[in-house]
Design a protein around this nucleic acid. Sequence first.
DNA 1: CTTGTCATGTTATTTCATATCATGTATTGC
DNA 2: GCAATACATGATATGAAATAACATGACAAG
Lengths: 170, 170
Amino acid sequence: MTSETHPNAVAETAPVGFQEHDHQTCVKTALVSAEGRCKEEGLRLTPVRRKVLEMLLQEHRALGAYAILDRLRDEGFGSQPPVAYRALDFLVQNGFVHKIERLNAFVACSHPGASHSPAFMICRKCDAVAEAQSASAKGVLGAAARAAGFEIERTVVEAEGLCPDCTEKA
Amino acid sequence: MTSETHPNAVAETAPVGFQEHDHQTCVKTALVSAEGRCKEEGLRLTPVRRKVLEMLLQEHRALGAYAILDRLRDEGFGSQPPVAYRALDFLVQNGFVHKIERLNAFVACSHPGASHSPAFMICRKCDAVAEAQSASAKGVLGAAARAAGFEIERTVVEAEGLCPDCTEKA
DNA sequence: CTTGTCATGTTATTTCATATCATGTATTGC
DNA sequence: GCAATACATGATATGAAATAACATGACAAG
């Protein structure tokens, strides 16, 4: 399967936190900021990695690894799964991208640089994804973990439901 | 977020994982309780479904669908993926089993019947899984969701880290 | 120049999940 | 009881996500 049909394409007006915004600027800013951080920290934002990040910023919604791979192929990059997965690993590792476990898909980070314990809202209808802060490790779960002697290293917090748009339509 | 000034939130959250307990009894009890609830609600706890639930209760950790399938085959049930997935669907749908998104695996519910917004602690070393209550929809995330007009239907809360046992060994 | 490191390319395979159609088995309503 | 219906299962095939293993290239440090 190499064709990625765009089922419920969310048009050009992509939602961050389900809101309209100047998307081109937001993409550009994020890319520049990423480049900056990489330079600072001696990370190598290579062409593949940069492209993947750009794609995810552009889309502003979750993309599966194979959808990304298709686009990479179209742009003349390698077209085998590891190409995409390695780029994604790098981006996730360094906080530029998050994996949405519920969807087995990836989304560009909306708060680059910020201290990261992200939470997501995922629309089950249009697949739009909004990022918020979770800090859930400090709440009930954190307490339970301490009580149990469990050492939290990372948390996945994902809320599934209906975004404002889809709620209206229903 | 939900701060430590509300300790009562924690009281009910006995973390059922990572602890010794009378396992045979716990399995039996859970099975009986499940049977009861199915009878009450007119659900059909068929042999495959019962077996899958029993297996998951027995293991007391997350099992992948194909691991379950292998065991089903050994017990003389059908051995094709849909057999396992259908049983799992039923069990998840009705709250007897939870899917751990992070692991693409399934675990028996530890609080059968209880109001369900589960949270999990997953040991990255031994794959042990403990269930707690999350209530995360009421914390920061809930606030963010309300602000954004997002309607939460279900939440995935999974903490990854080291369980007490594995922490000791390290 | 050679050694080491990191990134990429490529092949193959494993693991997770679902669509589809055929068949069987319980209820239910007559 | 018995047919009609709904629900459950069996079986085949395929889709989709992820990784193992090995080879090559690019580049900096010694």
